[in-house]
Design a protein around this nucleic acid. Structure first.
Lengths: 230, 230, 230, 230
DNA sequence: AATGAATGAGATTTCATTCAT
DNA sequence: GATGAATGAAATCTCATTCAT
């Protein structure tokens, strides 16, 4: 029992090692340009060994992506409190995003991979069904949608707007900005301007879906200063 | 005289044929996956012949992209009237977009190619300078920015918003949706839902950048019905 | 009659034009790297036209080579006087070589082409018979051999030496130096050092084949100064 | 332990196999005309496999060349004795040359490759610096130069002659003859006449650079007969 | 007579994947 | 379980030569 457990643990560790190396390379060079040999070399394994842990390149990438998405969702859920208002939830969502974007770079991985694996998502959901790996994307989408719909109930957002669609827009924009930001060196990426830009976009969207007459100052997202205070 | 003219015309037609075949393949499989041999086969030419018309793959793709962008800009400028209000101009912009999106698929090409040639644009403009081929993207960005700034002057939009950034957001979103939409079969793509979705996005943005208190009905974009009436 | 003559003349002129262009390119880039299209462009003709005048690349090159060799032989024969001593003849040979090397670059063409067409010559004369184009090389070889043998008769050279072989050595060395020199820009090529080097080589050979006891000062070749005085 | 050693040996053998096949093809068709696919076919490997052993065509060729040059230099150094006179050293040099020319064909490879990699060498040494692969050629040149200069000190050779230049001449001639000889079938190549010819050339040069009055019989090189007796 | 257009054959190189050990 | 070695398939690009007009 002890032995088989250890073996299993070791196997899991190897898998994580491979995924971590792949992630680093993806962050450096972009998804398309990462090759199996590079990953193998970085992990100090042989190419053939990768195939013991993953049936192929595609599967490896999908798993990387899923894992990051699941982590984000958990991270967010942990910080979320059912009683909080939708606006508050959105602000927390934003903070989680910022943190994982800057620190673990998980957001970059998520969106880079999303664009590679399910480039049509969230707009082409019918195609999605063929790729079970996209489950976590769907979960993300639903979470945002739920928040936004709660915002309608609470009177912040315009009830005539389709929040499934809006959730898609938000994911798209974040995805797009992330894809761009990922090309910058890490220091630049964490600079105020990039994060400021993402905030602008998000705020414009929030204002765009708000009910007429809502006080816009409520829709403001926390800035960098407020993040550190948190 | 007549002969040389005809030859020239034929040569131009061949060039167009190649570009058309390349465009179709790009629309079908995405830019990255299109190879010179595929284009050659589709055009019923030999690989070598392509190189008579274009110095290389890169150049072929750039020309496809530029041509589409120039066409869109001209198409739009022809319909634009200097005296019209910024809101009207934006509506016309939207109509032009819709038409070229649905009919000639030029918008799809533009944005697909943009993502291939200048993936960072519009957010990483410093990288842009290395690629002179991106001139037409810049022109597009500037045109949108100008419209939005005119909207500030006319009192529609919030003067505290950076319209260069907003123009970038709009391009990004259009680019993103287009990239997605392009994966659908043509019929689906022209369906109400996709176009409706694009309209929603654009309208949300417009509302998001509008001054507080502006009558939102002014910011509405023409729907499918109105297009055909036009 | 007048017309057909003119036509023939024009045809010959075209041929010469093509050959001249090819020669210039060979001088610039080396034989292997010259392509038919380059020659055609330089001659402001189409590739296809070249094939009207020459059955193929090979034949074009052979003719260029032959023509240069014939010219050199004629040039030399005109300056040669049957009564002159063999040493004097060799010195004139050397002067002719220098002049055509520096001015018309014919020597460069001859040897570059020789190495391309009949790389084995002068050592592999049995293979040569398959290439009738090498006639002029043979003529050159024989001329040198004749001079050297006359030198034996006149008591300058060692009668135990095979002068056919020696003639081959001389051609080889000249060929080799020319091949090297041709890679230099024209100005450098005509500099004292290259010509000086060729002279050294030739003098060493002459001393090497001289009879023992011969006054070596007789074997000196004219230097640059003497050339211009001539 | 034994296993990894065997694997390493096998890998080295494969590398040697590839190089041997490449060498044979070079000997048969000349450097320019040998392609990676031909080498692969001859070695009964796939094209891709070659790239496991060599980063590219260039590198493969350079390694072939270097290896042959290094072997020759070692072969010669082993037979050389510091106390021996320069004339003796030259005779040993000649014997080494003959042996490696006839048996392993290394000399052919060296000079064929030299003409491909550093065609200007030894006359265009300024171009050489760009090609670090030419180190072994330089070493060869220096070795000959040193021998010749020792010959001046010992009173055999004319002190007014530039021995750097002369070393260049010798390399050129050997290179030239080798290039020619390599086109012959192996049996012919090893025949008396070719080797006799090379000997003649070398002897002529030695006589040409000898001091006046030196007994020419000292400058004789061992003939075929003497080689086998050795 | 001249040529624009086309092409077949071939070159180098890359990479995901397989398999014997 | 791990891997070194091998490879098939594909990509981009070049060039001498041919042929219809």
């Amino acid at each position: 029992m002890g032995i088989s457990e250890r073996k299993e643990r070791e196997k899991a560790e190897r898998k994580i090692l491979i995924m971590r190396c792949a992630k680093e390379l993806i962050l450096q060079h972009g998804v398309e340009k990462v090759s199996m040999i590079e990953i193998a070399e970085k992990a100090e394994l042989s190419k053939a060994t990768l195939y013991l842990y993953f049936p192929g390149k595609e599967a490896l990438f999908e798993e990387i992506c899923n894992e990051a998405a699941v982590r984000f969702l958990e991270y967010f859920r942990k910080r979320l409190d059912a009683e909080k208002s939708s606006i508050k939830a959105i602000q927390i969502f934003w903070l989680c995003y910022l943190e994982l974007f800057g620190e673990s770079e998980d957001m970059i991985i998520i969106f880079k991979m999303k664009n590679y694996i399910s480039p049509g998502f969230p707009f082409l959901q019918q195609e999605l069904k063929k790729q079970p790996s996209a489950d976590s994307f769907v979960a993300l989408l639903l979470m945002i949608k739920t928040m936004l719909e709660k915002g309608i109930e609470e009177g912040f957002f315009d009830p005539s707007i389709d929040m499934g669609e809006t959730a898609g827009i938000i994911i798209s924009l974040f995805s797009y900005i992330v894809e761009n930001a990922a090309r910058l060196p890490k220091e630049t990426r964490q600079s105020l301007s990039i994060i400021g830009e993402m905030r602008s976009v998000f705020e414009i969207i929030l204002r765009g879906i708000a009910r007429e007459g809502i006080d816009r100052s409520v829709l403001k997202l926390p800035g960098i200063g407020e993040i550190n205070q948190r």
